[in-house]
Amino acid sequence: MRTLLLAVLLITSHPAVADPALAIIANHDGDYATLTRKQVVDIYMGKLTVLANGTFPQPVDYQGNPEIRERFYRLMTGKTLAQINAYWARMSFTGQANPTRLLPDQKAMLRAVGKNQDALGFVDKGEVTPSVKSLMIIE
């Protein structure tokens, strides 16, 4: 009985495994000093296309349904990838917003953001390289 109780205590007191942190990245020349988390969400949902400073953000996303994409939208919006796709189906099939540019992996994401002044992207925190600027950490 004691062993069982100990096992239950160990299991219930085990800290939840946190999702790996994500970094929102931009080009070194991008004017995103005042960008907020809410604005990042709005940009990726096609609702915010120009910032008060005149910058036209160019969000970059991943092709298909990789785990990092699912994690990004869950952390930022609390929604599943299916719910995000349902939202984008409404936007993109009806001309309300242009779908974001899609890239195959994090290397391509770092390359694209490093080359484009207005690009915004996201990679695992540990993948950030000097070629881009980390704007905020999402966890």
């Binding site: 296309t49 120009v50 036209f56 796709n85 349902a86 939202y87 189906a89 409404r90 099939f93 009806t94 001309g95 309300q96 242009n98």
Partner: peptide
């Protein structure tokens, strides 16, 4: 798209009467 915030469209489109009018055929939406 004459700016990142402004778009002009010409042709045949859905009448945007209701919230879901534009996407009324897209069951997944």
């Amino acid at each position: 798209q004459f700016s990142d915030a402004s778009t002009i469209q010409i042709g045949r489109k859905r009448l945007p009467i209701f919230y879901y009018s534009d996407s009324q055929d897209i069951g997944f939406a």
